[in-house]
Design a protein around this nucleic acid. Structure first.
Lengths: 272, 272
DNA sequence: CTAATAGTGTCTATTAGACAGTATGTT
DNA sequence: AACATACTGTCTAATAGACACTATTAG
């Protein structure tokens, strides 16, 4: 069958083969949160965190999943995650970018659903809304060994985990497919979305300014460095870090005091 | 409306609002091609090229577009571009990666269609198939000024062009939305797919090994450098280039002779 | 010999990594 | 004073950019 005939074919429209289907968007809302600390003069350590909601319907009843919903027939695809976030969380003017479209046949047990995932980056401390009862922030931690990633999610009372394998594709060494190895707590294929987003963020932090969407308006360079460190999963050297972000931030007249050590100058993001 | 109720809402399923829709994949097949040259000792200059097919049905009858087609109800999304390429071109074992999902309400005048685009990279000289009558390779050239990109496509007999604007998004300076400014020859929103793919390839060439999908098994470093130059749109310095690719290639015992100048050693891709 | 590309040596400039030191708040 | 973080200076290592030079063929 060549294209021409496939076009003809489509014109006739075999509704068995090319049945219409449902499309949803799932939104990976990522933020960075502080952890309270006993020593007053220690700066709180940060964690990446993700917003999950608890399902109260089948399938995956009482499992956690990413916020998401069906796209309306008269709605541009990028408007869909905006609407869903607004309805669920009162969030607006949020940084959103399309992540990936997942469309395995059996990803939803009810019916054929293809889902385009989006990643949202926010500073969770700036939120001016109340989460719905079913929604909760989970701290993310993970470890990787031999292309197998174990992810732990913790919201203070519930601890979830899943394991995903990165399977290298044949044709080049730098492309892999994610595969769920173990998952007892996250609905659908959302573990894949979470990992895809983390990887994306990890890459983009070094060649874009996306981090500043996760920062408050004023921040110290120490705080900013912590966010980099949490996302990259490694410690950075102060002088090197300051050189790299030097032209992305600008000094303000304010300082952060009261922490039992030298006050830090507050900076803000400087657009180029 | 909060999530919980939206879930309830979906259960009841308002088919007016969340009507099912059609999903297609469009495939941006990119390659690099030589241009014949009059001087026997000059190496042919290379061009990026894209595979387009001519539509012979409404809408956009007799316009050119990317190969593509509807996803089947029982087909994983990544299998769809594979099937379409095989059916159309006999191509198999091709490097494919998902590009972006386009879903503006009016992107197809017939009905609501959302399209997930894929990028395929091949060495066009290695193809062992005959293109269908409607398909043709177009050389790509483009120029950018003030975030406005003019793209020219030329298959030897037909010259097409379109203009796309990169509109910066508000929240960070490093995200933009593509918008068609002028387009009289390419069907649907395919100009956006083409540009998205070119940008993606331009980025990935420097931090991945994807280029080698566009190379023959044996190649000279001069040829490889040309491909880099064509994709990046700028000249590279020989010693710097050779340093960078040194650990990605390995020398073979073969040389390319007969071109009126010093023979070049043939290399092949070395996976890490 | 000549045009044209192949391939290398080396110097310089820029960037990244590492460490050590000074600064300054709170209790 | 002591702890803890803020911030800077500087040395070194690694990488990137630039240029100049030698090598080798077909005609």
């Amino acid at each position: 069958m060549i294209y021409k005939t496939e076009e003809e074919f489509l014109k006739a429209y075999d509704s068995n083969k090319y049945e219409k289907l449902s499309l949803t968007t799932d939104i990976l809302v990522l933020s960075v949160s502080d952890e309270e600390v006993n020593n007053y003069r220690k700066t709180p350590t940060k964690h990446m965190s993700v917003l999950l909601v608890k399902r109260n319907d089948y399938p995956y009843k009482s499992k956690w999943c990413l916020p998401g919903g069906f796209i309306a027939i008269d709605e541009d695809i990028e408007d869909c995650p905006i609407r869903i976030l607004r309805n669920e969380t009162n969030l607006h003017d949020i940084y959103l970018e399309q992540l990936y479209t997942f469309g395995d046949v059996n990803r939803d047990p009810r019916m054929r659903v293809i889902s385009t995932s989006y990643m949202a980056l926010i500073d969770k401390n700036r939120l001016d809304y109340k989460l719905s009862n079913s929604a909760s922030w989970f701290n993310i931690s993970y470890e990787e060994r031999d292309n197998v990633v174990t992810v732990y999610l913790d919201n203070g009372s519930t601890r979830l985990s899943f394991i995903v394998k990165k399977v290298l594709k044949e044709l080049t060494t730098d492309r892999y497919r994610l595969e769920i190895v173990e998952n007892d707590s996250i609905a659908f294929d959302h573990p894949l979305v979470i990992l895809t987003g983390i990887e994306r963020l990890k890459n983009k932090i070094s060649y874009t300014d996306v981090v500043f969407n996760m920062m408050p308006e004023y921040f110290t360079l120490g705080e900013l460095q912590q966010v980099y460190e949490v996302i990259l999963g490694k410690k950075l050297l102060d002088p090197a870090f300051r050189r790299i972000i030097a032209d992305k931030v600008e000094k303000t007249e304010f300082v952060r005091t009261g922490a039992g050590h030298r006050p830090a100058i507050l900076f803000k993001y400087k657009k180029k």
